[in-house]
Nucleic acid binder design. Sequence first.
DNA 1: CGTAGGATTGATGATGTTCAAAATTGGTGG
DNA 2: CCACCAATTTTGAACATCATCAATCCTACG
Lengths: 254, 254
Amino acid sequence: MTATTPILAAHGALASQNCQACPIRHRAVCAKCDDDELVRLERMKSYRTWQAGETIVMEGGALPFVGSVVKGSASLTRYLEDGRVQMVGLLMPSDFIGRPGRKTAPYKVTAITEVTLCMFDRSRFEALLESSMHVSSRLLEMSLDELDAARDWMLLLGRKTAREKVATFLALVFRRAPTSAAPLRCTLPLGRDTIATYLGLTIETVSRQVTGLRREGVIRLEGNGRTILCDDFPALLAQAGDDAFDDADDPFFR
Amino acid sequence: MTATTPILAAHGALASQNCQACPIRHRAVCAKCDDDELVRLERMKSYRTWQAGETIVMEGGALPFVGSVVKGSASLTRYLEDGRVQMVGLLMPSDFIGRPGRKTAPYKVTAITEVTLCMFDRSRFEALLESSMHVSSRLLEMSLDELDAARDWMLLLGRKTAREKVATFLALVFRRAPTSAAPLRCTLPLGRDTIATYLGLTIETVSRQVTGLRREGVIRLEGNGRTILCDDFPALLAQAGDDAFDDADDPFFR
DNA sequence: CGTAGGATTGATGATGTTCAAAATTGGTGG
DNA sequence: CCACCAATTTTGAACATCATCAATCCTACG
């Protein structure tokens, strides 16, 4: 068996990709790896794809792997007894899933769009962690970034108004949009329900705030309300209520 | 100069303590260190104490050190432009302050009680991080625990009612109380204002919920309202609305 | 015994939720 | 090509919760 032998997972399997050509090569947990370490990772990795809406891991369920998001986005959610939900994390390409030393997931992980993961067998990954500073130090960096992002979100959840929450979210989305010239345009991969879960609001309140921003001329809508345009980005930022937007701490831009 | 030479900081300095006798020796970032690494840490450490209410670091201010809380507790808070505040972290003994590679603090750090920090010069600590897997892997563990705690708190901030927030907070406090037999008794080091900042509520709402719990016989108050007794802990947990209390993810018990 | 700081209580109002219905869109099949 | 259907979004009205503003009360302390 060589490092380039295709490895197949049980379901939705993809052929193994060459790490050198990987789109997240320089941002994911493997970012600092040298060629030898990359070979070790290629030996233990496998790909799998989930469709939008599919559950990747149940809350409290077994998580026999760790891995990176290669393509698409996924949500981490927590539940209260009576069914109330809060999204506690949004995974984008290069983000890491799972944690060394833990075999079950403390959150439910759900595919928002079609998601492809690059999965590593946990025990073999842990062995690599112990021997390679490149992997462990990158994982530490990424975890500290996640921690900052989570704390930013705590400020939003605890203190921002519905209007500020929605404006903050939209500003976040536009920062990732391919277009940088006005009008900014973005087609959300999320429904109102997912946005509500992310912001700690109800669907109705999200909808009302989007409508409010539209009426005030800050944004425009197209089609089914999932495509949003913005002619005046500073006006949107002004509604976000933030001290200052700081890309480095922005959950979408790590 | 030897490893046991007392090192003095500019203000509120304490003599260097022996790491072996340190109360947080087995829980802090140095938990996994061997004797050699401990010697290196002793060479770069210094102690400093702040009084309750003092600012340890300003939001956005320079943070020339990293370090561990040895004694007391401190809060991490973030602000919006108009002054709204949210506590985003509660530091207890053994918790770590600062992050490698970053020279400014993204949060304001305030002493809740009298606080003593064991501070390490940042650049020397970073050098140790690069050479010692024991320090970096422990820091990774602690950071991932913090991340879990932050996400738990996101669920509280986003979805719990005022009653559930206060009950959750009190349950948290009682879990740290020295007494394990009924009646549980605890004297809070926090005022109503700090609790409100922690829970994303106002002082008045916290007070009303405490009163509500008292009227319903779940808790009793003593003195100025900072000493709280609980005869029926399960009744308190029932008010917390949580799925299950899980010590491992509890921000007070890491 | 008086005072200051913190905690509690009360009255009122704003904000966001809930429940219910209507509108819009994209897809399907005649 | 058009009509219909299901899913999603939007809108409306009533309500609940929590914040705000303004006293008042309590406790610790001098």
